[in-house]
Design a protein around this nucleic acid. Sequence first.
DNA 1: CCTAGGCTACTGGTCCGACCAGCATACCCG
DNA 2: CGGGTATGCTGGTCGGACCAGTAGCCTAGG
Lengths: 257, 257
Amino acid sequence: MDEDPVKFEPVTAVRAYERVVEQVEHAVLTGRLVPGERLPSERELMTQFGVSRSTVREALRVLQAGGVVRSRPGDPRGPEVLAPSPATLRKSIHRLARAEHMGLAELLQFRMLLEGSAYLLAAHLRTAEQLERMTDALEAMRRHVDGGEGDDAAFGEADLAFHDAVAHATQNPLVVACAEVVRDVALELIEDKLAHADDRRAVKRKTVAHHAEMLAAVRDGEGERACLLARRALHDYYAEYVPAERRAMLEPFLGSP
Amino acid sequence: MDEDPVKFEPVTAVRAYERVVEQVEHAVLTGRLVPGERLPSERELMTQFGVSRSTVREALRVLQAGGVVRSRPGDPRGPEVLAPSPATLRKSIHRLARAEHMGLAELLQFRMLLEGSAYLLAAHLRTAEQLERMTDALEAMRRHVDGGEGDDAAFGEADLAFHDAVAHATQNPLVVACAEVVRDVALELIEDKLAHADDRRAVKRKTVAHHAEMLAAVRDGEGERACLLARRALHDYYAEYVPAERRAMLEPFLGSP
DNA sequence: CCTAGGCTACTGGTCCGACCAGCATACCCG
DNA sequence: CGGGTATGCTGGTCGGACCAGTAGCCTAGG
């Protein structure tokens, strides 16, 4: 017989600052500390936790790196508890992207995966109000197609608002955050190439046409079609910037034709 | 006329430890520092950077929290540069999940979204070797269906290996990492409920049947079918644990029937 | 009376010096 | 020659100190 009932877990020396982090994080997670609230000052914390200021500061650094709190020098109200944001998710993905030598191909594939399915969900789950937001965004895009420099930014914002409305229609904050992050990181990779694209106006017009189609599909509850349209639109815009030998990994998303 | 050509950006005081973090992170990102390599000791770093040890330590804390580096007390070789891992991605998603009051419904929806499309990709992109890995994993699952306690773990491992092979077939590390993380976080939410599930053996048999179907679809390049099967399988397993009033957000993934 | 200005009491950021426990190696003694 | 110990390093923690900011009070000037 094998006697294994006694299981010893490997002991890990838990550093003092880690326990400070745990306590603060736990308080935030359980709602005992609410975003906007203030932590006691470092000197106050060091008496409450019974540790030195160095330890308190290292804990605060970790929390700050995790996007949980923010410290401002000279603020008598103490460190601020932050609202959760995808900022740290963004950094994680960013780092992972660079570390795994991921290129535009992988990011674009992931974006096609994510947004395509998001449109599928949106077509079935969207509320009337969300549909209205998409319509408004599309209108705004139309208004800024023919403008000059200034309108470029406005067009981009409207575009973003459209995608954001779709993501929200999934009712899933994780989809919203991931879509936003992946979109940003991907754009970062090619912003220079996009900057001096040849015919901005033509591109914008095509964008509007694509969005109009997708909006119609979402409005009519045609999820599969919306999904396919979204993936093809992404492919249309960005595939040219993907190395030719890697484009095969995008094709499964384009459908049968 | 509005003269805006001169745009002043808000100046942000750059803390000393932040510049230390930047330099180390940059060295890692550009490959000048490779995983497994060692950083100089804190006392050495403080002379190289020309800052105090406190500053060096705060920088190391941030890097450590970001999963870039690990310090062990008493190690004469200095802090170790870590291989990139989804650990920090995992923590980000975990935190986001709790902060946005996300429940199993959202996690499961995201997992259906992610894995479904992953199967679609896998059906078209899988290599022969990856197909073999899936086949082997399925075989292993079959072997451990009828076993007792010990086999439960083995079955779970084989199951994981199967999903992992599928994720790898997408050729996308981001898909691999996200799938792993979301799977873990979702399981965490219901591990207790799963623990005393009624008829483990019946569940296992159903699992094997499902996986066999999906494997066949992947083998035959039937992406759409694999996608649908995967999403339905996930729904079959977990939907019962999702609050009834939230199940609607999963249904768009189940197809038309 | 009200306001513009400085004043003060705090904040966080950085530095210094010290001590402790743990780890690897080299050394020394049996 | 082998094994245990001595040593010099490591990171973890502590305490104290100084500085540059900020916010709000508080006063001097309107």
